[in-house]
């Protein structure tokens, strides 16, 4: 059983979001980079749990990015996984990233490909689905539970107002959502082991992006809170009805 986990580098969840170059580029000055939480907490940790249940499982991590992504991929290896692959190209749109990951997957062959449900920076939620299409594999998005039964899996996915349970034969691509696993903190042994785990750098295949960002903007600032006396909640109801007109 071989599992590929897609890892993306994103700004820390508390990072201040600002832009440069006339609002066309993300200002990465003084930004701390982390493993995209959805990739880490849900996709990677679930893959590690599967390996803990069956030590013959092999986990590869893949990321698309320049050498500055190495620190993140080592951090991921400290949590678990056997080796990492970095496709040596700047990450652009979802399609170009998915094309690189699909090329790695074709080369190595995996039974299972996990991604996070979305990255917390560009919120595309698209790479997993695109990889699945490029490999002509089934795809289950927003999975909250994943149980392996031999060469098949039982997967629960989120739908509007509930969940759907499905059966699928491997290989399959799954995007992982909260519920799949719980966040882990890497231990010293893992951190030491990660230093010597293989990190293979491969050159990209030709894949032009289909989209590009032309400008960024920040949401309008709120006008300030209107405080209501806790002993006069009827006033809040009145304001919501007649001023905000939302109830």
């Amino acid at each position: 059983m071989k599992i590929l986990v897609c890892i993306s580098k994103t700004p820390d969840t508390t990072a201040k979001i600002a832009f440069t170059d006339n609002n066309t580029k993300f200002d990465s000055n003084s930004v701390q980079w982390i493993i995209n939480p959805n990739d880490e907490y849900y996709a990677l940790v679930r893959a590690i749990e599967l390996k803990e249940a069956d030590p013959s499982v092999v986990i590869h991590l893949v990321t698309v990015g320049a050498a500055d992504a190495d620190a993140i991929i080592r951090k991921a290896l400290a949590l678990g996984g056997d080796e990492a692959i970095r496709v040596n190209t700047e990450s652009q749109d979802s399609y170009s990233i998915a094309s690189q990951i699909a090329a790695v997957a074709k080369e190595n062959g995996y039974d299972l490909i996990f991604s996070g449900k979305e990255t917390i920076d560009y919120n595309g939620a698209s790479v997993g689905g695109m990889v699945a299409e490029l490999l002509d594999l089934p795809y289950i998005s927003l999975a909250t539970k994943f149980e392996l039964n031999g060469t098949a899996a039982t997967v629960t996915r989120e739908i509007e107002g509930g969940e759907e349970v499905c059966e699928v034969s491997l290989p399959v691509v799954v995007s992982c959502n909260k519920g799949m696993a719980e966040q882990r903190i890497p231990n010293m042994r893992g951190i030491m082991a990660a230093r010597t785990k293989p990190l293979k750098v491969v050159e990209p295949v030709a894949a032009d992006p289909l989209t590009s960002i032309t400008a960024f903007s920040l949401p309008p600032v709120k006008g300030g809170v209107k405080l209501i006396d806790p002993d006069n909640v009827a006033e809040l109801v009145h304001l919501l009805r007649n001023e905000a007109r939302v109830i």
Binding site: Y95, S126, M130, A132, L134, S141, R157, I159, E160, L210
Partner: peptide, 24 residues
């Protein structure tokens, strides 16, 4: 719609048709 099914379908169709996607 960028809902649960849309999030699965739109990226696949984008890759299949090589048609650029804006999600969300």
């Amino acid at each position: 719609s960028n809902n649960a099914n849309g999030k699965a379908l739109a990226p696949r169709l984008s890759a299949r048709l090589k048609a650029g996607l804006v999600a969300g």
